[in-house]
Design a binder for these strands. Structure first.
Length: 275
DNA sequence: CATATTTGACCACG
DNA sequence: CGTGGTCAAATATG
């Protein structure tokens, strides 16, 4: 679109002394290399399932993102923050709130799922709220098909108070899905591992459980006879709520073999090096 | 243009 | 009246 023009116009202005352009490129380069290695590492290990394919797809997308980011950075020749055009700036004029522009999704890398903690359903975020006494805001999601099919399912995601590294997320589901044909049939709902290196997520079920009637993997479902039963599931480090991509969680859904544990360690290393 | 996210405003409830 | 949940306009993005 007019993206290129915007960049040319504003790039010099957003260069700051504290922002080392070469270092940024170097870091992205490293992330790119690590992702490529990870992909090569994963390919022979993953079983053939659409679940695995999705993980590989994620990696491929990540590599594309890095390529795009690198070429953009190199073309820009300077470090910049997200530029605001006049119209966008107008929104913040006279307001003491957004000194920085709204945080938006990575422009080159749209996540496949619409919420964190991919659970086989598609969610749409409709709100975020700071909770009294909580360090982290709570995000509110409803089923993507709530409008189309009147699906009442909602969930909230809130980062745990503990300073655990990686952080824990509390996911609370409310109401059952009534939408159809939207469940990822390959979603392994319950994971049966315990690695202290993974992100644990407390999942609470209010009224109903998530992939319930349509749960494609009932044999693994540890859920859910009682409404308010609290379950500990081990997911992976991931982006903060709202940004969506939780690829590692998918990978960790593999059976816990030695390989997958090594994989976990490798993933963690990779993640650490990326942030 | 369609769809998703962000975020301040609004509202119900205790 | 404070808090938490939802709405909806603005915005982002393919």
């Amino acid at each position: 679109m007019e993206m290129g023009m915007q960049m040319e116009m504003v790039a010099p202005r957003y260069t700051s002394p504290g922002c080392n352009h070469a270092t940024v490129i170097e870091e992205i380069n490293r992330a790119h290399e690590l992702t490529s290695q990870l992909q090569a590492f994963l390919l022979p290990l993953l079983p053939s399932s659409s679940w695995s394919e999705m993980a590989i797809d994620h990696l491929t997308e990540m590599i594309k993102c890095y390529n795009s980011a690198l070429s953009t950075l190199r073309a820009a020749g300077g470090c910049r923050s997200t530029p605001l055009d006049d119209q966008k700036r107008k929104r913040f004029e006279g307001s003491d709130w957004p000194v920085v522009p709204k945080k938006r999704r990575n422009e080159n890398c749209r996540p496949m799922v619409t919420s964190v903690l991919y659970d086989g359903y598609q969610w749409r975020k409709y709100g975020q709220k700071g909770i009294h006494g909580a360090a982290h805001p709570k995000s509110y999601f409803r089923c993507t098909y709530s409008k189309d099919q009147g699906c009442p399912a909602t969930k909230t995601v809130q980062r745990d108070e503990s300073d655990a590294d990686p952080p824990n997320y509390r996911v609370v589901y409310s109401m059952a899905h009534t939408c159809r044909n939207n469940v990822d049939a390959n979603f392994p709902y319950a994971m049966e591992s315990s690695s202290n290196d993974t992100t644990s997520v407390v999942i609470q079920h209010q009224h109903f459980c998530p992939p319930s009637a349509a749960t494609p993997n009932p044999s693994q479902s540890s859920c859910l006879s009682n409404g308010d039963q609290e379950l500990m599931h081990l997911f992976s480090p991931e982006e903060v709520p709202g940004t969506g991509l939780d690829m590692k969680g998918e990978i960790l859904s593999l059976p816990w073999t030695l390989e997958s544990l090594e994989l976990d360690a490798y993933l963690k290393t990779m993640m650490d090096s990326m942030y």
